[in-house]
Structure formats: C-alpha cells, structure tokens
C-alpha cells in the first residue's frame, strides 16, 4: 500500500507512468496541459492557454470538466494520467469534455494499475465535439501481472457538423483483468468518428467491447475497428454496431481476433443497420489462429516460430 504525502504519491505515479511507457518529461513541461489523478486525489492539474481543466474530488474519484475554447488549436498533446497504485481500490472518474467549434486537440491518457489485485476503475465520459473541431484521444492502460482489476469504461460522444473524433484504446501490457468497454458515438452532418480498440487478453482475462456509431447527419462517416489477441484462457466478446441513418453516410465495422492456444475463446458480433436508402454500412470480422503463411514468411528470414508469432501479434496490436 502506498500512502503518504501528495509529493510521494505524485512521485509514485510519475515512476509508474514512465514504466508504462509514458514520457516523464511531458509531465514536467509547463507548456503542456496535464492532469494527474491518484485514486480520488488530484495530484497535479496544469492548464495552458485555451484549455480549462476543472476538477472536483469525490468520495471515490474525481469529476473533471475539460474545456477547449472555440478556435483553439493546441500544439502539444494534453496528458491525462489516472491510476491506483495500491493493490486494492476504487476509482471513479466522471469526465465531461467540451471541444469548442473549430478547436483542435490531441489527448494522451495513461491509466496505470501496476499492483492491482482488487481494483475497480470506472470512467463515465460525456463528450461533445464542436463544429469542425478535431479531437484525437489515445488511451493506454498498464495493469501489471496480477490481473485483479475490473474496468468499466463508458463514453457517449456527440460529434457536431464537420467535427472529427478519433479514439484509440490500447491494453497490451500486463493482464487486462475484467473489462467492459462501451463507447457510443453520435455523428452529425459531415462529421467523422473512428473508434479503435486493441487488447491482448491473457490468463483468465474477460473482455467485453461495444463500439456503437450512429451516423445521423448527411455525409457522416464512421469506423469501428477492433484488434484482439487472446491466449491462455482469455475470452473476449466484441460487438461493433453501426447505424446509417442519413443520406450518404458511410460506416464500416472491422474486427480481427487472433486466438493463440486451445483454451481462449473469441466472439465477434458485427451489427450494421441502415435506415436511409442512400446510406451504406459494411462490416468484416475475422477470428482465427495466427496465419501460418505470415509465420513462415518471417521464419524464412531466420526468425524462430515463437519470435515470428510475437512479431505478428505486436503488429496487430500496434
């Protein structure tokens, strides 16, 4: 159990952040907006011009209001760092994001639970992307090797006319534990939504993913993409749903799950629906073992079989 002063907790988080692949220097850069939250304590919150990060500590977590002012184009990515360092804990993050019209921002979020034996991390996000605004969100998790974590991640995103929402969720280091990922995006006229999930399930990981895109505005476009690799006794269910409700809207669901071993179980449920005759939504889903031809292609360059499989798996999750 790590306890003590805010400074000690901050140092612990920075160290774990670095181990999880984060850039430690970015947390010290004054030109970068950032937020570091450990359990329910805000350890650091730095704004830059055009960005507001308002926080309120709650019993089990933090409520956050993240505002990007209209027309602001943020040069350096905003860094968010959430974590629970002890073996047990509950962290509830309620996140409200408002990206003003014509704004542009890139956000890198690191979620760190390196010692989790019995940890629950919940995120409930309500996000609005303004007209012609662009929001790029990358969330990377690091969970350690105990697998004692439950993730409940929910987001509702509204993308207004001409706006762009791109999110990438990656969890390939450590055990996933139990994960329930539920992202739903509503796209207005000429807006774009791209949801990407990449995860490596090992041990007894239990992964549920729901990516839902509603193409409600004319010319809206959406992609729900997932890449999962499962080994040991891990199981995963991926649902990709896209609804073409407006003329000339275009959507695609793309799911690949690789099963490495005999006990892992993968399920893919793509769902496409069109309620407008000028809309088009497509899907593709592939589940199977690592492709033998790919493995032998790399083996013919001198890699042994295990290394070849490793390279293919890392490529899928990159």
């Amino acid at each position: 159990m790590i306890s003590g002063s805010i400074e000690e907790e901050y140092e612990g988080m920075v160290e774990a952040y670095e181990k999880a692949g984060g850039d430690k220097d970015s947390l010290a850069d004054k030109d970068i907006a950032k937020l570091v939250v450990h359990e329910n304590r805000v350890l650091s919150a730095d704004e830059v011009s055009g960005i507001k990060l308002e926080t309120k500590e709650t019993e089990n977590g933090v409520d956050i209001r993240f505002l990007i002012e209209e027309g602001v184009k943020v040069k350096k990515p905003v860094h968010l760092c959430f974590g629970v360092l002890p073996e047990e804990g509950l962290q509830e993050i309620v996140l409200k994001v408002n990206a003003g019209d014509n704004s542009e921002v890139s956000v890198i979020a690191h979620c760190i639970f390196p010692n989790a034996v019995k940890v629950i991390h919940k995120m409930d996000a309500d996000i609005e992307i303004g007209q012609n605004a662009r929001f790029d969100y990358k969330e990377t998790h690091y969970h350690g090797e105990f697998g004692g974590i439950e993730l409940i991640l929910k987001a509702r995103v509204k993308v207004n006319k001409g706006g762009v929402w791109q999110s990438t969720f990656a969890l390939s280091d450590g055990l996933v534990g139990k994960m329930d990922y539920d992202f739903e995006v509503f796209c207005e006229e000429d807006s774009v939504a791209e949801l990407i999930v990449k995860a490596y399930g090992k041990g007894e990981d239990d992964i549920k993913i729901l990516e839902k895109i509603h193409l409600n505005g004319e010319g809206a476009r959406g992609l729900a993409k997932s890449r999962l690799v499962l080994s040991d006794k891990a199981k995963a269910e991926v649902r990709g749903e896209t609804y073409g409700n407006a003329p000339h809207s275009r959507g695609h669901v793309d799911c690949i799950e690789l099963v490495n071993g005999t006990e892992a179980v993968a399920t893919a449920i793509p769902m496409v629906s069109v309620t407008n005759e000028a809309a088009k939504v497509t899907h593709e889903a592939a589940i199977g073992s690592v492709d033998r031809r790919q493995v032998e292609t790399l083996m013919a360059r001198g890699l042994d079989e295990d290394r070849a499989v490793d390279v293919i798996v890392k490529g899928i999750l990159r």
Binding site: I256, Q294, T297, I312, K314, G315, I316, L317, R318
Partner: peptide
C-alpha cells in the same frame, strides 16, 4: 521470396 507474399498488419 514468395510468389504471393503474406501481408502483415502493423509491420
């Protein structure tokens, strides 16, 4: 060098 070389995503 394969006649129809494999394609590997992410590589």
């Amino acid at each position: 060098a394969w006649q129809e070389p494999a394609r590997i995503e992410g590589l």
